[in-house]
Amino acid sequence: MLRFVLARLVQSLAALAILTVVVFVLARATGDPLQLILPMSASEEDYANARQYLGLDRSYVEQYLSFVGKALTGDFGNSLRARRPVIELIRDRLPNSLKLAAFAMTVSLLMAFPLGVLAAVRKGTAIDRAAQVIAVLGQSLPTFWVAIVLIEVVAGRLQWLPAAGSERLASYVLPGFTLGWFVVAGMMRLLRSGMLEVLDSEYVKLARVKGVAEHRVVWLHALKNALIPVVTFAGIYFSILVTTAIVVETVFAWPGLGRLAYEAITSRDFPVIQAVVLTTAAIVALVNLSVDCLYAFIDPRIRYAG
């Protein structure tokens, strides 16, 4: 077991190492951060000064090594734009992102459960199709449009819920729903096909034969097993949530990582771009790793299958 965990850990770290090079190069490809920092009247000398001050005059190799070396100790350098340690910015934003992702995840589970179960139990009927359409609808509209219409109607006109901010719980509902609905389709699909498989299995048939009530069969036996694939994809869910969140955060003025990344890219803030991408990737890797280890723990065969 330990060997398996270690091997998976090494794999994740290898992927992250590749990513450091990619993000380092990509960040620098975005252009010159000084165009946003220095005023129009800045002289050649001012540019040289600022370059030196911000450490941009060093060679790329030197910059890369210093970036990786510091990153290993949890230091991502200073933001070129905000002139503060990047780690402070991440500390400001990451909790907001995680909270929103957790809320969105809850929303999508709440929607996917009944839809997925209903669709599987009533497979092939109009109910099945209706459930699929409801789930897929969330994925068929651009999130920003859903968000804007929700803000206009629910917050602006009906005044039921706040339009922005992250201070109150009520502020979570609209962004959480927008984001959550977007991933319902995927989750519902997994639940439905998982359910179908399990409902067809010997052991559920046995439960039926033994006279277990149908709703108990469905809810307890089948659902428990159908949940596994949903857990498997937790990492992918998270990365989809974070990606989509850039848009949702912009509309709802939600101070999360996605918005930070957007601001960093538009202002060519290399250290922040690097830090956000690596943080996100590290979290996704961590989620995947935990899931894998959990599986390996449950099912020893996986340990050797690679």
């Binding site: 804007i148 803000i151 206009e152 917050a155 602006g156 006109r157 005044q159 706040p162 339009a163 922005a164 912009t250 509309v251 709802f252 003025a253």
Partner: peptide, 11 residues
Amino acid sequence: EETTRVALLRR
């Protein structure tokens, strides 16, 4: 986002 600013104002 403009729509959001306006909604905040209305609320």
